[in-house]
Every structure is written in C-alpha cells, then in structure tokens.
Nucleic acid binder design. Structure first.
Length: 309
RNA sequence: GCCGAGGUAGCUCAGCGGUAGAGCGCUGCCCUGAAAAGGCAGGCGUGGCGUGUUCGACUCACGCCCUCGGCA
C-alpha cells in the first residue's frame, strides 16, 4: 500500500496570514525537490504583489512557483477555478518525480482541492442580481422560505440572513435542475488518488497579530498605496477588489481619512481575516500543527520531511 | 482662580429613584464556484472618589479629584 503511494504524496502548508507559509514552502521545496503551488485567492492576480503579499522575485527564484501572478485582475477567480488550474499542475509535478507543495491560507480553496467540489455550473451573475433585487424588495426571509420549499436540506444549513448562500443554493437548482443537497453526494475527494499531508503553522494570537502589524507597515513602505491607486483606475473583478488594503487605501486616496487611519484599518481587517482563518483550519483534524515560536524552522522542516518519507 | 459642560463596557456615547444599554472593537462559531468574501452568537462593567437624603442611588444633594471649552 505504502509502496504504491510512494511517489504520490502531496504536501500542504496552511495557517493564518503572515505566519510564514511561503518561507517554509520554499525551504521544503529545496530540500525535497519540490515545487510550490500557491493556494491563495489573491496571489493569483497580476499587479497585486504588494497587497497580496505574493512571493518576491528572489523567493520565486529559490523555488518554482505555480498559480502566482497568472490572472488579470479584471477576471474573476474562485475555488473551482483554482482547483481546475491546480489539478493538472499537481499531476505534472508528480510526473516530473517532484513533490507538489501546496501553500496558502484560502481555506475554501484548500478544501476544494483536498475534498473536492460537487459538479455544478459556474456563477450566474444575472440570476444573482435578480435575486439581490428580490431581497431588497421582500427581505431575505422571503428568499429563504423559497429555498426551504425547493431544497429544505440546504435551507436548514443556511441562516436566513446569509443572502449569498441562499442565492447560491437557489442558483444551483435554477441552472442544474438539481438541489445542492443532491449534488453534494457526488463530491469526490483528492485523497482517493493521492496521499495528502497537511501541515499547519500556528503561534499565539498575540504573536500572529504583531506579525500582521509589522507586515502591514512593510506593505505600506513598499508601495501599497501606489499599487492600490493603479488598481483603482482600472475596472477590476469582484474577487480581486476584495484584496485586503484595496478598499481602505482607495478611501484614503479619496480623502475620507488620513494615511495612519488607513493603515490601522488594514491592520484591523487583516487581524480579523487571520481570526477567521484560524477558526476555519482549527476544525480540520487532518492538520498537523507546528507552533513557530516553540520550534525553529529547521526542526519543523525536519519533522515534515520525516512525515513525508 | 472664575464660569460652563462632562466623568457609565476597550472606544464613542444613550438612559433611568428600584442593583445598567447601543454602535463599533474584541472573542467564539458557521462556511462547497465572490472566501483577503459573506453570515451567526456572546455585554457583572468597583457607573471618577467620598459623605449624605431615601426602604432603595448610576440616577437627588454636598465635598473632593480629573478632563474639555470660555474668561482671566
């Protein structure tokens, strides 16, 4: 059993933002003959390197990176798109007899990759807009009631105020003729094909927050304002515009508040993001955690390599 | 020093003679094609300090301390 999977190991590095996933992934890639696949909804975009904290030129030279800076900001990205792009990349890396190292903090993307997505259609913007209008006229409860009639299983899982998810569930039924509850049973996880090893980096909340604060300061020193200003002039996708820092800086450039305030807002929003990431990853029992303050990087690397071999 | 306003949850502030609320923050949680997004839940805090009035004071009175504005 173990022999068959010997060359089919996939390594994943997860954890909150600013914890050092990129760095660890690169070190592992060097030691294991691996290649890094970014599992990140924002690093995929071009022209957003500073805001998305994408790996630097040097880092990209140190190890081969995939799915970084590959998408025009005007295009939408999604967990499904990521999966579609990542699967062949993983297969190709394995074919080269190298180790795929998936690194990133987008929890849903990790799940989409590891546990799979049920087969369905892509987003239908017109339908979503129509539903949105319905909600502003009749309230979300009304729409939730509609879902309850169509797909009671999903309705029970989705809060009446969670408009996005109600709309998505209705959209799935509208475009496929089948309910989300039905489709979910057709999800095929990746672990059927590969040996998945997930490692998480963690630290005390205080430590994570102070790392975020200094990273945001650095971001601003490195030209985040200029980058955001450039993006603000173009029309960028709904996905890309949610990158942390973009909205806050745009409003600063708009004269709504000063630079210090903008910085504080970015810090606050990044801390909240990290908090949500922690909640997300915490519940995944498959993750093997390493506290970065209790373990030197070399030790973590050694332990991971031992796990993989 | 005088006059005025005020000191209530981390912050900004409501309110009331019967042992306190909101928004934001914060913490916890949920999450299947927008996910760096979206949603849900959680508020005992010496009510600046002291004395008094009262069955009972955060709420009234007096004194003190502190903050802000104006006058000197």
């Amino acid at each position: 059993m173990k022999r068959i999977r010997e060359n089919k190991v996939i390594l994943l590095i997860v954890g909150p933002t600013a914890i050092g996933k990129t760095r660890l992934a690169i070190t592992l890639a060097k030691k294991l003959q691996g290649e890094v696949i970014s599992c990140d909804s924002m690093q995929a975009y071009k022209g957003m390197d500073i805001l998305s904290q994408a790996p630097s030129k040097d880092e990209k030279k140190a190890a081969k990176h995939h799915l970084v800076g590959i998408l025009d900001p005007k295009r939408e990205y999604s967990a499904a798109t990521f999966r579609k792009k990542a699967m062949p990349v993983i297969a190709a890396i394995l074919k080269r007899k190298r180790v795929p190292i998936v690194a990133g903090g987008s929890g849903l993307y990790v799940r989409a990759l590891v546990d799979g997505l049920f087969p369905t259609t892509a987003a239908d913007m017109k339908f979503r807009e129509r539903m949105q209008r319905f909600v502003s006229r009749n309230g979300s409860q009304e729409l939730h009631d509609r879902l309850l009639r169509i797909d009671p299983g999903s309705a029970r899982l989705i809060h009446p105020n969670d408009v996005r998810r109600i709309i998505r569930a209705l959209e799935i039924y509208e475009t496929t003729g089948r309910t989300m509850t039905e489709l979910k049973t057709a999800t095929r996880p990746l672990k059927d094909r590969y040996d998945i090893k997930i490692f998480g980096l963690i630290a005390s909340r205080k430590k994570i927050y102070s790392r975020i604060d200094s990273r945001v300061d650095k971001m601003f020193d490195c030209g985040a304002v200029k980058e955001a200003g450039k993006l603000a002039k173009k029309r960028i996708s709904r996905t890309a515009e949610t990158v942390l820092g973009f909205r806050e800086i745009k409003r600063y450039l708009n004269g709504e508040y000063d630079l210090e305030y903008a910085k504080d807002l970015v810090k606050m929003n990044t801390r909240r993001f990290a908090k949500r990431q922690l909640t997300w990853f915490r519940s995944d029992g498959r993750i093997k955690w390493f506290d970065i303050t209790r373990n030197k990087e070399a030790k973590i690397v050694r332990r991971i390599i031992k796990e993989v071999r």
